[in-house]
Each structure stands twice: as structure tokens, then as C-alpha cells.
């Protein structure tokens, strides 16, 4: 890690101005759980850090009106345990609680978490850090160098949304839940404020896997909003991983339902751990919508979500696992209907 300057931004506007002044050599830092980690790994090398974690009011959690509004620097812990979120939107609360250890949840912010970068081991472990040196080619880290995961140890990699250039999984849990809940991202940049539906926030890897977010240079995530919906109550974030806690998803599903008795009126289904971005499955939603939910139908919906999936050398099991995770999640969510 090279020497760098560190300053605390008093306001979002000041942060954006400082970022612009640094001409590309700055990064915003909030919790730092991902950025500082990547700096230690030699993947990120900012010359200037602009601390946005003390910006007044940007940690507000508002639940009174028609929307839930989470300030960009609100801590994952605080959002997860906000009573309205915990009781009426379990999918959001659970996605945060299952995302990281309690220590990391006390550090990481809900805005920063949207920008968490992949856990692909070829991406993380070959960048020239002292832990190991530039051994693994990676298009995300070094555009054009190739993808080592393709044809390699790809057990944790994506089966949906992959390209010839990259199969790295989007690591987040919270963004998956937000995807199911049609959240909106509020940003502030040099050109002023801008809102973007979360569905438009993430980019498929395509030929440019190093470009992961539809975020303009210098834009800062200032808030996330979710329109209130009765679907929040009959919801869950179901996550299967290689151990019972403190691990990234092998496959996960965010499900939120509106039910008429046993019949599904509307369904929102998003997937994590299996795709290159947080992944909404309209196909799975269509299968359960309008029908009484049975375990068989739930599994059929799960399978539909993976109709276009492509397995690699070691990760094809995720296609079946992912389908079953959706099936279980649908049953869990349905049981929570009022």
C-alpha cells in the first residue's frame, strides 16, 4: 500500500468536490471493510481517501412516509435492527444480518455495501499484495489479461450472467434483497443528484468486467429508498453457504410475496451467489404468480430461474442448489403471510 492522504468530508457536496479535485486518484471511504481490504490486497491504490462516514444526516433511517429511506452511511447493523425493517421487511433485515459478522456490520454501510467487489479468488489473490503476487490473470483487475476462473477452480463462480471474459459472482446479499424490493439508489455527483432504480445499477460483465456499476466518476451513494409494500411481510432472505455463518453465499434467494390465502398474488424473486450481478428472476415470479403455492410449484419456479444457467467445471451444482434455495425461500416467505 502506498502512502496516501486522508481527510474527513463534512458534507456530501464537499466530498464530491474533493473527489473531483483529486482527478481520479481519490476514493470515498465509509466503513472501509471492502476498500481497505482491497488496498491491503494491492487491488485498490487510492492516493487520497475521503471519509464520508461522518457526513451529517447521511446516516438517517426514515420509515415514516410511503417509503423506507436509508442514508448511504447508515450502518448495516442499524438498518437491520430498525423495528419497521425487522418486523415488516424481514427480507431486508435478514439479508443484512446474514451478510457479514456482527463486527463488520458495525462498520460497513448500506451504501458502501452496494459497491462491494467480487470475492472471486483469482481477482482477490493475485494483485501484487504481500500475501501473494501477480500470478492470476483477471480481466476485472487487469482488463485484457484473461480470466483464470474459466477452466479453473470455479466452484464458487456464477452460472448466470457470465461472459467469455468473467464469471465472478456478485458477492452481496443486501443488494439482492434490494433488487427484489425494487429499491432506488440516490447519488450525488459532480453533475448534481441522480436517482437510479437498482435494476439499472449493476452491469453484466460482457467484455468489460472491470466496469461493475453504472456509477459516474465521483458519484457518491447518498441514500437507498424502498417503496413500502405489503409484500415486505411475507418475505425472506434464504442463504446457503459452506458454513452456517460468516461466509458468502453459494446460493441465496430474496423472496417477497403478496398472498390471497394460499394463492400468490404477486411475487418478487431475486438471487444471490449464482450470478454476476444481483439477479432478478421474472421467469420464476411468473410461475408462482396466480397459483396456490405448493412445494412442487415452488421447485418448478426455482428451476425456471436457472433455465439459461451455464455451469463451469465445478459449479454446475449451483443450478440445482439455487433452484432448491428458491423453492425453500418461497415456502418460508409464504408461511409469514399475515
Amino acid at each position: 500500500m502506498r502512502a496516501l492522504s486522508y481527510t474527513v468530508a463534512p458534507s456530501a457536496e464537499a466530498a464530491v468536490a474533493r473527489f473531483a479535485a483529486a482527478q481520479g486518484s481519490a476514493r470515498y471511504i465509509a466503513g472501509g471493510t471492502n476498500l481497505y481490504d482491497l488496498m491491503k490486497l494491492g487491488i485498490e491504490h487510492p492516493a487520497h481517501l475521503i471519509d464520508v462516514s461522518r457526513i451529517d444526516g447521511m446516516d438517517a433511517i426514515e420509515t415514516d412516509g410511503d417509503i423506507l429511506r436509508f442514508g448511504g452511511r447508515a450502518l448495516m447493523t442499524d438498518v437491520a435492527y430498525t423495528p419497521v425493517v425487522r418486523d415488516q421487511y424481514p427480507v431486508l433485515s435478514e439479508s443484512l444480518l446474514k451478510a457479514a459478522s456482527q463486527q463488520l456490520r458495525n462498520m460497513a454501510t448500506v451504501g458502501g455495501n452496494l459497491l462491494q467487489r467480487t470475492r472471486c479468488m483469482y481477482f482477490r489473490n493475485g494483485a501484487g499484495s504481500t500475501s501473494m503476487v501477480g500470478v492470476y490473470p483477471c480481466n476485472k483487475r487487469e482488463p485484457g489479461s484473461g480470466c483464470s476462473a474459466i477452466g479453473g477452480l470455479d466452484r464458487t463462480h456464477a452460472v448466470l450472467g457470465t461472459s467469455e471474459a468473467c464469471t465472478a459472482v456478485a458477492p452481496g446479499d443486501w443488494p439482492v434483497a434490494l433488487m427484489a424490493m425494487d429499491a432506488t439508489i440516490e447519488m450525488l455527483g459532480p453533475e448534481g443528484p441522480r436517482n437510479l432504480p437498482i435494476a439499472e445499477f449493476y452491469r453484466l460483465p460482457g467484455d468489460t468486467p472491470h466496469r461493475e456499476f453504472n456509477l459516474h466518476p465521483g458519484e457518491l451513494v447518498t441514500a437507498i429508498t424502498v417503496r413500502k409494500t405489503p409484500a415486505g411481510r411475507a418475505s425472506t432472505y434464504h442463504k446457503i453457504r459452506d458454513r452456517e455463518s460468516y461466509a458468502f453465499a453459494l446460493a441465496s434467494a430474496a423472496v417477497a410475496l403478496e398472498m390471497d390465502g394460499a394463492t400468490v398474488r404477486t411475487a418478487r424473486i431475486a438471487l444471490g451467489g449464482v450470478a454476476t450481478t444481483p439477479w432478478r428472476s421474472r421467469a420464476a415470479e411468473a410461475i408462482v404468480t396466480g397459483s396456490p403455492l405448493t412445494p412442487e410449484l415452488a421447485l418448478r419456479a426455482g428451476r425456471a430461474a436457472f433455465a439459461d444457467a451455464r455451469g463451469g467445471q465445478h459449479n454446475a451444482f449451483k443450478i440445482e442448489l439455487g433452484a432448491r434455495v428458491i423453492a425453500d425461500a418461497l415456502i418460508i416467505a409464504a408461511e409469514r403471510r399475515a
Binding site: 470475492r119 479468488m121 483469482y122 492470476y136 483464470s148 458454513r243 455463518s245 461466509a247
Partner: peptide, 25 residues
Amino acid sequence: SEVDPRFAGYLNDDLADYVMAVNAD
């Protein structure tokens, strides 16, 4: 401990990717 034969060395050389039991297990 996972070795990608194309590169040798250990790919999962940290405590997130080398999965050890936690309390909840």
C-alpha cells in the same frame, strides 16, 4: 487448501476462503 495446477500455490489462501468451523456450526 485448493491448488490450481496452472499456477501452483494456494488459491484460497485466507480465512474467508479456507473455510473453518465457526461457532454456529
